[in-house]
Write a protein that binds this DNA or RNA. Structure first.
Length: 137
DNA sequence: GCCAACGTTGGC
DNA sequence: GCCAACGTTGGC
């Protein structure tokens, strides 16, 4: 089991959208680091769902229901997509400002590399973020 | 292979 | 709306 954090702009595709759709396809990633992270995801891996631009908070947990496959939205190049389903929303969303202020998790890539849209999380960081959200897996 | 210029992302 | 950080592109 691996742990991840994925970002989405809620006005484009929010966690609520994922809940309503059931299964959501993560495509359109055009960054090699993010793509390689998508490719490393295994069935059943869990990902925290972060709202960028609007909200700036972790709002829920998703899990991988289909491992990487070619991204059909890519006209050229070698890109991959992954499918997720919603697992559960956070009881209490965890703000970026809260993460930055917390010495246990302010080293994560979300803070260190604000532009990366798909990133791995250490297990302990994943669970600490869950506890900040008053949520259990 | 280096690096300047440019484009994009995303927080503020 | 601005700008910092980062990635990519392209000239040399």
């Amino acid at each position: 089991m691996n742990y991840w954090l994925i970002k989405s702009e809620p006005d484009v595709y929010s966690f609520q959208n994922l809940i309503e759709e059931g299964v959501g396809t993560w495509d359109g990633v055009r960054n090699y680091q993010a793509r390689n992270n998508l490719r490393a995801m295994k069935l059943g891996d869990v990902a925290l769902y972060y709202h960028s631009n609007i909200g700036l908070e972790i709002v829920g947990i998703a899990s991988v229901v289909k491992e990487h496959f070619p991204d059909t939205t890519a006209e050229k190049g070698d890109w991959s997509a992954v499918q997720f389903k919603a697992v559960k929303p956070f009881t209490q969303p965890v703000k970026l400002s809260q993460i930055k202020a917390d010495e246990k998790v302010n080293h994560i890539l979300l803070v260190k590399n604000g532009r990366l849209s798909v990133m791995p999380l250490e297990k302990e960081d994943f669970f600490h973020l869950l506890s900040l959200g008053k949520t259990t897996l």
